[in-house]
Design a protein around this nucleic acid. Structure first.
Lengths: 344, 344
DNA sequence: GCGAGGCTCGACAACGTTGTCAAGCACTTC
DNA sequence: GAAGTGCTTGACAACGTTGTCGAGCCTCGC
C-alpha cells in the first residue's frame, strides 16, 4: 500500500544528502563520516525500514546479482528437487537470486527463454539437464557466464559438475561384496548415456578388484523403468545358478525387480539382495523392505555450480574446473548376506 | 563479450533521437512517425540485435513484470512440478517472469526471502503449499498482491485455487460403482487436512447417491505413506465379507495396499480393484498393474493462479475469487468389475 | 594572523528507459 | 505574405542508485 521509501526519504529524514546515506549504508571504505551522522542515517533508515531498490542499484552497477538455471525438465521432474534446493540456498547465502526456467526440452522455447533472461540482465547461467548428459551449450549462451549442472561438455573452458557414476557403481557393488555375495547381477539401462556406461564400469571394476571374473550372463539391460526391471529381473532370476544379489541401474528398475522376485517366490533380502540407484524416496521408502540404494549428490551439485558461477563472475580469471561428485550409499533394508551357499 | 547495445546505439545508427527509437519500438499509440523513420529505426535495432534493458525499463515504469512463487516445499517435492510448469508457462506467455523460492517450511527464512524479493521489486506473489492447506498469509505480504496456490485462507479478499477434493473423492468412488462394486472400502489419511475430509465426503456422497449406506467398517485411516496403506490394507482385506474394491487416499497408500493384497494372495484387479489419488507417475506407472488414480489439477492451478494475479495487477478492481478445480480420473489397469458375487 | 592540511559532506553525472511537452517544418488559407 | 494547421521529431526530466570530485570548515603550526 504505502509506497516503498527511497534513499531520498532517508536522506531528508536524517538531514543529510543521498550521497551520504549511500556511503553510510554501504560502508564505503575510505569514506570519513562522523559517528554522529552515521547513526542518524542508520536510525532514519531503520525507522523507514528502508530497503534499497535493487533494480536501480543493478542499473547503476551493471550487475543484477541474478542467476538463471535453465534446464530441460528439472523443475518438473521428481528427480532433482535437491539440485534446485542446493543451488537456491547457495545463491541466497551470498545474496544472489536464482531464477528457474524450463525449456521442456524444446530448443526453440529454450532459445526464447534465454533471450528473455539476458534481456533481464541475468548475470550468469546454470545449464542443467534432467540426468547426467553430454550436451552442446546453446549458442545464445556464448557471451554469458555459464556453468553446467548434471552435465558435461567437451569445451573445457566451461565448468561443470556431474555425479561420479563409476564410483557410484563401484560402491553399490562393493556393498554387496562386503556382505559376502559372489554372484552379483546387474540390471543396466539400455540407453547409451554416461550413467549406463559409468555404473557398469564401476560394477566391473569392483568385481575384478575382489578377484571375481565378471560373468556376462549376469548382466541384463532393459528400459529404465519398472517394467524394464521386471523383465530383466525375471531373466536374471531364472539363471542357474541364480545370482544372490542384483545391482539395479535405478530405483524404478529395482521396483520392477521386486515384482519379479515376488513372482518367483523369492524374499528380499533373505533370498535376494537388491541395491538401487538414485535414492528416489517415493520408491525406496515405499517398497517392502526399504530399498538400499545409491544417492545422486544433487544438493551438492547445485550448490557447487552456483558457487563456482559466482566465483567466476566476481573474478573472471578463476580457472575452469570440471568435477565429478561422489555418490553416497543410503542403506535401507534390501541387503543382507547370502543364504548359506545355495548353489555350492 | 561485446557489450549489449543500448537504445542510444540504435538511435545514433538510425540517425534519430532515443525518444524516437523508444516510440517506434514500443508502437506508442497516438505518435505520428513517418514510415521512413520507422523502418530505419527497426532496421538499426535489428542489425544491432537490440533488446531493451528491462531493469532500466522496470525502474522507469515502476513495474518489474516479475512474479514470485514462494512455497514451503514445492520446488523440491515430486508432487507438484506441474504447478510450476503451469505457472511458468502462463507467465511467459504474457511476458512475465517467475521466480521460485523455497522456504523449507521455516517462517524465518520465508520472511527473509520475501523481503529480499520485495527489494527486488517483485510485482506480485504466488503463495503455494506442498499440499492443499488452509494457511495464514505471512504479514510481510500484506502490502503486496498475492494469490494462494493449492491453499486457501479465510480472508476472502485474497484469491485462491485449490483442488476440488470432494469431487475427486466422488469421481473415484463413482468409477468403482460404475463397474458394479457395492462393497467399496476407503483407506484414508489420518492427518486432519482438507484432502482427508474432502475425499471422505466425496466417497460418502457417491455411495449414498448410489443407494448404498456407507459402512464404517470399510473405512480405515493410516499414515499417508506406503506403510500406512499396507497396514490399513491388511485390516480391510481381513474383513468378512471382504471389500471388492478400495479407494486409497493417495498413490503411496495404494502402493502399500498392493503389497498387502499380494501378501493375501489377491490379484489386482481380478480379486480387488484399487483406485489411488495424486497420479504420482513414479508409482502409478511403476506398479503392476498400473494404478488407476485421480489426478490433481496441478498444471491448471498454476496457470490459473498466475493469470489471476496478473489480471489483478493490471486492473486492481478485478474482484477476488476463490476457486476449486476439478480432479480428473487417469485410468490404468487396477479397476475391473468384481468377481461374480464372491460373498453373496 | 595566516596558510596548510585534515576531516566531513554534498553536487553532479551516469546507468537505460519512457512520458511530456514543445519545437521545427511544410503546407494551407485568407 | 502572414498566420494558422498538421505532421514529425527531439530535449528534458525522472525512476533510485552509486562513484567521482571538489567544497567547506576546523585545527594546527609558525
Amino acid at each position: 500500500m504505502a509506497k516503498r521509501s527511497s534513499i531520498k526519504d532517508v536522506a531528508s529524514r536524517a538531514g543529510v544528502s543521498v550521497t551520504t546515506v549511500s556511503h553510510v549504508l554501504n560502508d564505503v571504505p575510505g569514506k570519513r563520516i562522523s559517528d554522529d551522522t552515521r547513526s542518524r542515517v542508520r536510525q532514519a533508515a531503520d525507522e523507514l525500514s528502508y530497503r534499497p531498490n535493487s533494480m536501480a542499484r543493478s542499473l547503476r552497477l551493471q550487475r543484477s546479482h541474478i542467476l538463471a538455471m535453465v534446464s530441460d525438465q528439472i523443475a518438473t521432474t521428481p528427480h532433482a528437487g535437491q539440485i534446485i534446493l542446493g543451488a537456491q540456498e547457495a545463491a541466497s547465502k551470498r545474496g544472489w537470486l536464482l531464477m528457474l526456467v524450463n525449456s521442456g526440452g524444446d530448443r526453440e522455447t529454450e532459445r526464447a527463454e534465454i533471450l528473455a533472461l539476458q534481456q533481464r540482465q541475468v548475470d550468469g547461467f546454470l545449464y542443467a539437464t534432467m540426468y547426467h548428459q553430454v550436451v552442446d551449450v546453446p549458442a545464445e549462451l556464448g557471451d554469458s557466464a555459464v556453468t553446467l549442472l548434471d552435465a558435461r561438455c567437451d569445451d573445457r573452458r566451461i565448468p561443470s559438475v556431474a555425479p561420479d557414476e563409476v564410483q557410484g557403481g563401484q560402491v553399490a557393488t562393493q556393498l554387496l561384496l562386503d556382505q559376502g555375495h559372489r554372484r552379483i547381477g546387474l540390471i543396466n539401462n539400455a540407453d547409451d548415456i554416461p550413467a549406463t556406461e559409468g555404473r557398469l564400469t564401476g560394477y566391473l571394476s569392483a568385481l575384478r578388484e575382489a578377484g571375481i571374473e565378471p560373468d556376462d550372463d549376469l548382466v541384463e539391460r532393459g528400459r529404465s523403468e519398472a517394467s524394464g526391471g521386471y523383465a530383466a529381473g525375471l531373466a536374471l532370476l531364472d539363471r542357474d545358478p541364480r545370482p544372490t544379489a542384483i545391482f539395479c541401474f535405478n530405483d524404478r528398475m529395482a521396483m520392477g525387480l521386486y515384482q519379479a522376485a515376488a513372482e518367483r517366490g523369492l524374499r528380499i533380502p533373505e533370498d535376494l539382495s537388491v541395491v538401487g540407484f538414485d535414492n528416489q524416496e517415493l520408491i525406496a521408502d515405499g517398497l517392502r523392505p526399504g530399498l538400499t540404494t545409491v544417492a545422486l549428490p544433487h544438493y551438492e551439485m547445485g550448490a557447487w555450480a552456483v558457487e563456482t558461477l559466482i566465483r567466476r563472475l566476481e573474478d573472471p580469471d578463476t580457472p575452469s574446473e570440471q568435477v565429478l561428485l561422489r555418490c553416497p550409499v543410503v542403506e535401507r533394508g534390501s541387503v543382507s548376506p547370502p543364504a548359506a551357499s545355495p548353489g555350492a
